[in-house]
Design a protein around this nucleic acid. Structure first.
Length: 885
RNA sequence: GCCCCCGUGGCGGAACUGGUAGACGCGCUCGACUCAAAAUCGAGUUCCCAAAAGGAGUGCCGGUUCGAUUCCGGCCGGGGGCACCA
């Protein structure tokens, strides 16, 4: 028997055994209950990092535990393989994005395998493979046929030097990241998915997701952003003249999609910008408010700089045109908005107050009104809205209080702070005396009765723009035909495969300038057509991969019955950075498939867990340059740079990143300590939802524990059948064992891995202290099963050393004996006035009177009472006695 | 600005529905084994007082309670999300 556990031999050996025996294949025909455990699939960036190791270790523990507790487990792995980094690599290293991606996948697959994850590799997929994205194209067309896809003009970030579209993260301080040129906004015709059609269900559905973190549900709720209020019409004192011949000028065009949106009704955002009959000029416009109760406090109306009325007016008004141009220039960073002044341009026009036609309000164009929220127009109530107040003060507009917390306050003027608290209406005609809530209802009822407005709901959520002007993504399966417009590619001609012969020596999307790929006959009329060269947002790829994992027929995206047997994912684990977009899009996609009758699943992820990051200290030399952890060492209590010997500044642990050079490559660590020690460290100490600070001491500690378990098991194995088994029964150890079984199980189910690890440490400590006995033998064997989900290679090796049948990966999880979970003696705390003074031991369930008597007999209690009788004695059975002196 | 979360030893962190604060790990100290070191094992480790007895103690101030890390109110500090959202 080897003295030490040798992970290099054991890891490779057991990984091969698992693979040869197909232990982790998920059977579609199993009679066992099913469990689908999934971690967010990785982007093949090059190499596995510690964040991956932590994420996949957590999922692996759960998957292995579920298998041992009798489930048929689906635990798959794949690659989120489309995206910009591949194109950047293509530009920088002159390597094709596909070759770069596939080679990364090979590297990372091998790295993952070395960690011994219990994955069903037979279901591996990569989103950049036509066998995946072809099915995605089919699903896209299904949504297209169902009317859930549309096309409209939308703004993009345009780099005028590189002649290319930039993603938001490529715009740094308003300039292109590569060219440094000032980024412009350009309108392009782009594809959108109607996620706003699902806003209500996506919001309501959050209520059912009780196994999601509250934080994530809240973030999604805020993102969807439902606001109830009143949408009403302001009539202009005099209608605007009809548009000039030649129609809408540059930038005034109404988006293609807006007409469709308007036709569907007014309860969706974005709503119709301005209701005006063509050729008759604009005589009114709509505003939205969540505070209809404050309508008598109105002192102005304001529209967004991009509002059709503002644009129309600007054509004849150079001053306004200049103001509009200035508003467009303004930055949108948090700091700029914080300090940005509320500025407006008085159009000179007046609107009629809806409740009093004689009351006229000035109409401003204001920089703080946004075209893409609500109707792009507001009424200003300075007394009860801080922004409106600042605006009114600046332009000398009246400020009338219409809500007062108390009758005395009604006459008090508004100072520098708008009043947004509760109260009753004042200065509001026949609404006076109503609460704000009653006022809201009354005004909405009146608007609806008189026909000038209606109660409505406005959403913050926008439709999902899925067009990307990029090569390395799923081609959108559409052909543009001059005669027929956009025409779907027929299903039997899918997949539309990306051409391989592209070059990145010119800026822009290489698909646009591909000589042959773009040329295709119109599927509808046979005339000349041009392929859509936009590709799909990579979030589309990750919106259904969990379905494809569950079922992957060759000829269609998935088999409904097969997928429904596995779905929803029981436990989904990943980073909190995906709390909004990925998770919302996947929820939407699943619901969209349900609406079109493809899959009857409401929510894709029943349980969600967001794990913390892996962090490391940062090091900075005297010259301010970042230093990597292997470039520094500790000396005489301080840190120095190995190369120069100069002192180094140490920064607090931060997320591992290339820019700060504080990353630790997992592979050399696995080489040195083996997979189990790395896995064990990932699970120890830090609660999984919090950040984990990587450090050398931690991995050393994990290594020591792996060796301790090995020692226990190999010694026990060596003595089996000998006199060791003939010792006295060890009731205390047996009890500890069964308490540990229960605790570890419930802690793994709760994903509280750090607590499960602590439970196991306690058991190992108890075993080491125990004398040989049958109970000790049972404890060691059970310990091996308890560590199996976390340190699987060690567990297999130990299982073999104990001469047990089969694989521990396929063994049953131990069962806790309920009779052994309760103690028969308990320690009772004895307090005087709530302060601990003594403890005593009593049989479990001892009557209150007995405990009180024992406590009062305590010498320490007697000394404090000094012979006086206690005022009161509180007894909590099996817990404590508190003597109140 | 709005919303949310978190503050416990030198460090990571435990503590069930209010009931012995500091489990477990790391680090450190002392000891055993060793010529020595590594590895391993044993003891100790919240702070104050030389020790004992005792006292203080879960960011700060106050409240409820026989009893508060836990509940309530107000501050301070850290982190996150959204953001000129009407």
């Amino acid at each position: 028997m080897a003295a030490r556990f040798n992970p290099l031999e054991a890891d490779a050996h057991w990984q091969k055994v698992w693979e040869d025996r197909g232990v982790f294949h998920a059977s579609d025909s199993s009679a066992k209950p099913r469990s689908y455990v999934l971690e967010m699939f990785p982007y093949p960036s090059g190499r596995i990092h510690m964040g991956h190791v932590r994420n996949y270790t957590m999922g692996d523990v759960l998957a292995r535990y579920r298998r041992m507790t009798g489930f048929e487990v689906l635990h798959p792995m794949g690659w989120d393989a489309f995206g910009m980094p591949a194109e950047n690599a293509a530009i920088q290293n002159k390597v094709h994005p596909g070759r770069w991606t596939w080679s990364n996948i090979d590297t990372m697959r091998a790295q993952l395998k070395r960690l011994g994850f219990a994955l069903d590799w037979s279901r591996e997929l990569a989103t950049c493979d036509p066998s995946y994205y072809g099915h995605e194209q089919a699903l896209f067309l299904d949504l297209f046929d169902a009317g859930l896809v549309y096309r409209k003009q939308s703004e993009v970030n345009w780099d005028p030097v590189d002649m290319t579209v930039l993603a938001n993260e490529q715009v740094i301080d308003g300039r292109g990241w590569r060219s440094g040129a000032l980024v412009e906004r350009r309108k392009l015709s782009q594809w959108f998915l109607k996620i706003t059609d699902f806003a209500d269900e996506l919001l309501d559905g959050l209520g059912e997701l009780d196994q999601w973190p509250d934080k994530v549900r809240l973030m999604q709720e805020n993102w969807i952003g439902k606001s109830r209020g009143l949408r009403f019409r302001f009539r202009l004192e005099a209608p605007l003249p009809p548009p000039l011949p030649g129609g809408e000028g540059p930038g005034v065009g109404i988006a293609e999609g807006d007409a469709a949106a308007a036709a569907e009704g007014s309860l969706r955002s974005p709503p119709t910008p301005a209701p005006s009959l063509p050729g008759r000029g604009i005589d009114s416009f709509d505003v939205f408010t969540t505070r209809p109760d404050t309508i008598f406090g109105a002192s102005f109306a304001a529209i967004a700089p991009d509002h059709p009325i503002a644009l129309a007016l600007a054509e004849h008004d150079a001053g306004l045109a200049e103001f509009v141009a200035e508003c467009r220039k303004g930055g949108t960073t948090a700091a700029e908005l914080e300090t940005a002044e509320k500025k407006g341009f008085d159009t000179g026009l007046k609107v009629h107050h809806p409740l009093d036609a004689a009351w006229k309000l000035p109409l401003f164009v204001a920089n703080f009104v946004l075209m893409d929220y609500g109707t792009g127009a507001i009424f200003g109530c300075p007394a009860h809205d801080q922004r409106d107040l600042e605006f009114a003060r600046r332009y000398g507009l009246p400020v009338t209080r219409v809500v007062a917390a108390s009758p005395e306050e009604a006459a008090e003027p508004i100072g520098d702070e708008a009043y947004t608290g509760p109260g009753r209406l004042v200065n509001s005609g026949d609404l006076d005396g109503l609460t704000a809530e009653e006022g809201n209802r009354a005004v909405i009822a009146r608007a609806e009765a008189e026909g000038w407005g209606e109660g409505t709901v406005v959403w913050r959520l926008r439709d999902w723009g899925v067009s990307r002007q990029r090569y390395w993504g799923t081609p959108i399966p559409i052909v543009h035909c001059e005669a027929c417009g956009p025409v779907p590619v027929p299903r039997d001609r899918l997949p539309v495969v990306l051409p391989d012969d592209v070059s990145f020596d010119q800026p822009g999307n290489p698909l646009d300038r591909h000589p042959t790929w773009t040329k295709v006959d119109c599927p509808s009329c046979g005339g000349p057509g041009r392929r859509e060269t936009d590709t799909l947002d990579t979030f589309v790829d990750s919106s259904w991969y969990f379905i494809r994992f569950a079922s992957q027929p060759k000829d269609r995206p998935f088999d409904r019955a097969e997928a429904e047997r596995w779905l929803p994912v029981g436990q989904y684990i990943g980073g909190v950075e995906h709390a909004i977009l990925h998770l919302l899009y996947a929820r939407f996609w699943t619901r969209a498939l349900r609406r079109i009758g493809r899959l009857d699943i409401e929510e894709p992820f029943k349980g969600l867990f967001t794990q913390g990051m892996v962090t490391h200290e940062t090091y900075r030399g005297a010259d301010g340059q970042w230093l990597a952890p292997d470039e520094v060492e500790q000396k005489d209590g301080g840190w120095i740079a190995i190369a120069t010997g100069e002192p180094v500044g140490v920064g607090r642990p931060q997320a591992m990143s290339k820019s700060k050079r504080n990353g630790i490559d997992p592979e050399p660590i696995v080489d040195q300590y083996g997979a189990d020690a790395v896995r064990w460290f990932m699970l120890s100490d830090s609660p999984p939802e919090r950040d984990l600070a990587w450090n050398e001491d931690g991995i050393e500690g994990a290594w020591r524990f792996i060796q301790r378990v090995w020692r226990l098991a190999s010694e026990e194995g060596g003595h089996q059948g000998s006199s060791w088994l003939g010792g006295e029964d060890d009731k205390a150890l047996r009890r500890k064992l069964h308490q540990t079984i229960a605790a570890v199980g419930s802690n793994i189910e709760a994903l509280a891995f750090n607590k499960a690890v602590a439970n196991i440490y306690e058991l190992a400590n108890a075993i080491e202290k125990a004398a040989p006995s049958a109970a000790r033998g049972e404890a060691v064997e059970t310990l091996v099963r308890l560590v199996a989900p976390m340190a699987p290679h060690l567990a297999e090796q130990a299982w073999a050393a104990l001469a047990k049948e089969g694989l521990v990966a396929e063994a049953d999880w131990p069962k806790a004996d309920p009779a052994l979970l309760v103690e028969d003696e308990v320690t009772i705390a004895v307090q005087v006035n709530g302060k601990l003074r003594d403890t005593l031991t009593a049989p479990k369930g001892a009557p209150k009177e007995a405990l009180e008597e024992m406590a009062l007999a305590s010498e320490k209690v007697g000394r404090i009472l000094e012979g006086k009788a206690p005022r009161k004695v509180i007894v909590v059975p099996d817990r404590l006695v508190n003597v109140v002196a």
